[in-house]
């Protein structure tokens, strides 16, 4: 590409909008996780009440995509990018929803005595995945995106491990059951966040080199393409 064209400004604007959305969701998630780990009721409340801001951003990015489809009638990279942004936007919004769920379940737990289950390692992985995928998006970097696909496997392992230990605690004493279920829900949210982040990573790889890597193994012999 030699010159900068008027429509590059529009794509740049969209790129900024989706990155802003991602960063906003990331903050939202980090707050939810911190609220849970620190048993901070006020923080959990902010997360729940902030959700509508994210919903509004999602609609704005969506509108922008539709407008650009009509106006620019994109081809090749632009087409793949625009189609991917629509999906990424939706996945970000759903990560935001998971953050709200984490905050809600934490609001049940916070006034009650802690069970001896520490979700810190799993929450750290979720944070790292989300951060990494935003980095991939900002830098159009498929290597970062591919890292996310590998991390996702650890997420599944965490889910199984926590299910086992939470189940054991619930068996010890029926009074633990309600809190145990809330904890289980939170691990389930974290695992969903892993899935959604993986979707985003796959979309980044797709628009970067147009290879559809969904439903294929992450450690496959993907070679980065040259398009873009």
């Amino acid at each position: 590409m030699t010159a900068k064209h008027y429509f590059d400004v529009e794509y740049e604007h969209l790129r900024n909008a989706i990155v802003t959305m991602g960063i906003e969701v990331e903050q939202h998630l980090f707050k939810a996780i911190d609220a849970h780990l620190q048993y901070n009721e006020a923080l959990a409340d902010t997360v729940v009440s902030y959700d509508h801001v994210i919903d509004k951003m999602e609609m704005e990015v969506d509108d922008l995509c539709v407008k650009l489809f009509a106006k620019l009638q994109p081809m090749a990279f632009d087409l793949r990018f625009l189609a991917s942004v629509i999906k990424i936007n939706n996945d970000f919004e759903r990560i935001g929803d998971q953050a709200v769920s984490i905050a809600r379940h934490s609001l049940y737990l916070i006034p009650r005595p802690r069970l001896s289950v520490d979700l810190t390692p799993m929450t750290m992985l979720a944070k790292e995945m989300v951060h990494h995928v935003i980095d991939a998006l900002v830098n159009n970097n498929i290597y970062f995106a591919q890292d996310v696909l590998v991390m996702e496997e650890n997420m599944d392992r965490f889910l199984m491990e926590y299910m086992g230990s939470i189940e054991a605690i619930m068996k010890q004493d029926p009074k633990n059951v309600r809190r145990g279920i809330n904890l289980l829900f939170i691990t389930r949210c974290l695992e969903r966040i892993g899935d959604l982040t993986t979707n985003v990573a796959e979309d980044i790889v797709f628009y970067m080199n147009a290879k559809d890597i969904r439903h294929s193994h992450p450690e496959g012999e993907e070679k980065p393409g040259s398009a873009g």
């Binding site: 030699t2 010159a3 429509f7 081809m75 090749a76 990279f77 040259s226 398009a227």
Partner: peptide, 19 residues
Amino acid sequence: MFTNPSKKTTEDYITGRFG
């Protein structure tokens, strides 16, 4: 050709970034 052309010149042309 229109979703993922092999050559950069093709890509530049069909996306209107040529020249």
